[in-house]
Amino acid sequence: MGSALSYSQRLEVTLPEDPATVIAVVGNSNVLLGDLLPQVDARIAEVEEKSGQKIPAEQLGTARLSLVRGLLGKTIQTKMMRESFLLEQVGIENADKREEADATLSGRARQMFHEAELPELKKQYGTENLRELDGMLRKKGSSLLARQRDFVDQMLGHLYLRGNVNRKPEVSLSEIIAEYDAEKELYFRAERARWEQLTVLNSKFPNEQAARAAIQEMGREAVFGGSMQAVARARSQEAFASKGGVHDWTSRGSLASEPLDDQIFTLPLNKISGVIQDQFGFHIIRVLEREGAGYTPRSEVQDELRSKIRERKIEDSQRIALDRMREKIPVWTLFPDDIPGSKPLPVSLTRRNVSANR
């Protein structure tokens, strides 16, 4: 495609004024600056509106360049997948066959846009009038034509991934066992317990004696009334009072109160404790369940492990598909460092993009 820009020249790249300038070539598809500028300008307008001030002129060029660069990377990837799908459909057939396949498949995708996407857009923007809808989209940096074009590219790209990525890989028991053994330390859990708690806070009473009297009264009510949780909801002063004072599984050593922590892990189960004093106030507890330290059994995390392995296999399959795609589809771009395996745009296409400020 001709000679390319040197590294030092690429450092001086600025956005051209002509929206028709080619800023990337993906296989047989061109990406024009004008394809991205509406979204860029809409984003800048949104930022200025939210901040209530204009972006300084000396920063505006850098901001636009950065936004174009980000959008271009996403656009190139989508078009690479589209080109890969078309290539798979026609193999190494001639250009006429490719254009024929492109027209046929794009036509089907456009039909899907009108049947599925367009009704949703009308609903989202609250109008059935296409001209009005197009105007609303343009205010957001898009248009009906742009949304249709993007939908077609994404649909064909999705078909490429669907045909090359196994979304439901098998996961064997041996793989689950190996995963569990390799990451067993992640499934170690300290001694833990569940308990009910009544609390009075020193800060809520004029003195310690009054606070102690209040917790003793709550304890008697729990013992003789038969419902510690009911007393907690009505009178307790700690964070879990609204839940009946029930504390779910909590590991030893994780509480701010050392006296409570010690009692929770030494008291007999299902016995109401005496009054426990700490730096916050007074408490009465009843330990409901307690488990010793150890490893979570593999059977309890088997589904989690299976999902984790499956996701990793899908990611690996997708990475391989994208690597194959990059090998098949040549890319020339204004920002070759952003796309692995891509090349700088030829000088013949980019000389209008190079700053004259030497």
Rank of each mutant, 00 (worst) to 15 (best):
V13A: 13
M80G: 02
G2W: 01
D35S: 13
L260A: 09
P56N: 06
D96A: 13
S84F: 04
E208T: 06
R252Q: 15
R352L: 14
P16M: 06
R286I: 05
A239H: 07
E221D: 03
D316P: 01
G274T: 00
G70Q: 11
L33Q: 05
L11I: 12
S66D: 11
A232N: 05
Q209M: 07
K313H: 06
M218P: 00
D134C: 02
M80Y: 01
N164C: 04
G2V: 07
R10I: 11
D102P: 00
L32I: 04
A182P: 07
V354I: 05
L269R: 07
V40K: 10
G27M: 04
I44R: 07
T250A: 14
I284D: 00
E175Q: 12
V347Y: 11
Q263G: 01
M112A: 13
R147F: 04
I329C: 07
E238M: 10
K54I: 12
S172I: 01
F113I: 11
T75G: 02
D41A: 14
E175W: 05
L145R: 15
A241V: 03
D337V: 04
E304Q: 10
K184L: 08
A95M: 14
E49K: 13
G70E: 14
E185P: 06
G244C: 09
E217Y: 02
G2S: 05
Q59S: 10
E49L: 11
L161M: 09
E175I: 04
A210I: 14
Y187K: 07
Q53E: 15
G245I: 00
R194A: 11
F265W: 15
I264C: 08
G91K: 14
L86C: 02
L267R: 05
L11S: 09
F335L: 07
E12N: 13
Y180C: 02
H158S: 14
L305T: 01
L60I: 09
Q302R: 08
N28A: 08
E83C: 04
E46T: 14
E221N: 00
M112D: 09
E93I: 07
E170M: 06
S254P: 01
R69T: 08
F205S: 01
G274V: 03
Q53M: 14
S242M: 13
H283M: 00
R64P: 13
R192P: 00
E128P: 01
E132A: 07
A230S: 08
D316F: 13
D338R: 15
R310Q: 11
K343D: 08
G157I: 03
I339D: 04
E175D: 04
E300H: 06
I92S: 15
A239K: 12
A24C: 08
K97Q: 11
Q39G: 14
Q111N: 09
T296P: 03
T104E: 15
